[in-house]
């Protein structure tokens, strides 16, 4: 849970100065999603806890050698994926929790289950209604012909075209 609105990049800069509060802020922002991901993949809260703990210990220990364009989200994303595969491999090597791997992890590798990853995330109608209620006019704004990232109005474009024609 975040306690302030400081961007991650600034917190990483503060981490270089051994700022423990910045570290804890980063921790509270990213800890639970990481834990939840590991727990879903491994079905083991103890392993999930150990992975999250090791990732944050690694982040704290590497704080002085982080590159300039360091992205904490990308780092955590890469580390957690690596750690999950390592954990599965280690369990299989030690013949630990074989039953849970057979019943809960291996079915996840089936084609039917893997196809879910390729499908776009679909929001339920109630979620869409809620989002639309937060931003009135969003439904109409989503059309491609309304795509206007620069914010130039039609009137301004007409005026500019008229001026260009006049110059010709």
């Amino acid at each position: 849970m975040s306690r302030n609105f400081t961007p991650d990049k600034i917190l990483i800069d503060q981490l270089l100065l051994n700022d423990t509060e910045a570290f804890e802020e980063l921790y509270h922002r990213h800890c639970y999603p990481l834990y939840n991901y590991c727990n879903e993949k491994l079905n083991s809260p103890a392993d999930a806890r150990a992975i999250v703990r090791d990732i944050f210990i690694g982040l704290w220990e590497k704080r002085q050698t982080l590159p300039v364009d360091f992205s904490v989200s990308l780092y955590l994303y890469q580390e957690v994926r690596k750690a999950v595969v390592l954990c599965v491999n280690q369990k299989l090597e030690e013949n630990k929790d074989l039953l849970s791997i057979q019943t809960q992890i291996i079915p996840g590798f089936a084609v039917v289950n893997l196809q879910q990853a390729k499908q776009p995330v679909r929001k339920s109608s109630s979620e869409i209604q809620y989002i639309n209620s937060l931003t009135p006019g969003r439904v109409h704004k989503n059309h491609w012909w309304n795509y206007n990232p620069t914010g130039i109005t039609k009137k301004a474009i007409k005026h500019m075209l008229q001026r260009a024609f006049n110059l010709l």
Binding site: F23, E24, Y27, C31, R49, F56, W60
Partner: peptide, 24 residues
């Protein structure tokens, strides 16, 4: 969620001992 966060943070603190070296 807070319980899980606290548990992991305590383990991180115990292993790195950062509160000892860099007290708030």
């Amino acid at each position: 969620k807070e319980t899980v966060e606290r548990m992991i943070l305590n383990e991180v603190k115990a292993q790195t001992a950062y509160p000892l070296f860099y007290p708030k």
